[in-house]
Amino acid sequence: MHSVVCIKQVPDSAQIRVHPVTNTIMRQGVPAIVNPYDLFALEEALRLRDQLGGRVTVISMGPTQAEVALRKALSLGADDAILVTDKAFAGADTLATSYALAAAIRQIGKELPVDLVFTGKQTIDGDTAQVGPGIARRMGLQLLTYVSRIVEVAPERREIVVERRAEGGVQVLQTRLPCLITMLEDSNRMRFGSLPDALRAARQEVRHWDKTAAGIEDVTKIGLKGSPTIVSKVFTPSPRAEKAEMIAIEDGSPADLAAALLGRIAARFPGVEKELAQRA
């Protein structure tokens, strides 16, 4: 089994702050991490390799700093890492990103045929969940999104059975290899990397592929030029016309505050009061 796992380096969004006056993102000091959803994809690929043999290649598109994310994946046990990096990719939306990654995965396949492509469910910075489906479509792969469990892989029959989270239930799907899987969160538990892997990750080469090495055929389909969408403005939401009514009592106990709050809810929100009465 040869699995390719797509990962993305993202800012740890839990730590992003917006400057209160200038409304700009304060990036300094915000650590870059591997998109947490991608780790479920990586772990699943590593498990399949451990069970069935084969290799796990991790790939990422981004600036040269994203090499750190790939080294992290190597330290967790991935065998090879490729960074797709070129100024020509800048400004890509999800359509242009999936074009570039699909081309690069095809190049990987020329070295060693690919059985499975994995992505996370979505990223925590873009939250679009569009790149996985985009890669599958461009490569003509069957698409299995929101997979919660891989039930069975039969490499000799070129078949795979998975459980997929659907609306109102779980679909058990059978399809043919190669295919693309987007893994659901909490579908597994990421392993701790081993010491030998940590040592290997520190010195192993992370290959950098520019647009030529990545096999890009049509440069009008990458970067800003290949992106049908643009961001026309970025802003903070306007505060409500009226701010919160603050409940405060001088020297009041928590019980006094609670009682005051209940009184004010009853006075201003009869709908809530009615709802509460139904629960009495």
């Binding site: 800012p11 969004s13 917006v18 993102i25 939250d127 961001v231 026309s232």
Partner: peptide, 15 residues
């Protein structure tokens, strides 16, 4: 929302 939900953005589709 964008930047992990720290800001909002408006997106348009070109041609």
């Amino acid at each position: 929302p964008t930047f992990g939900g720290s800001l909002l953005c408006t997106i348009v589709t070109l041609n």
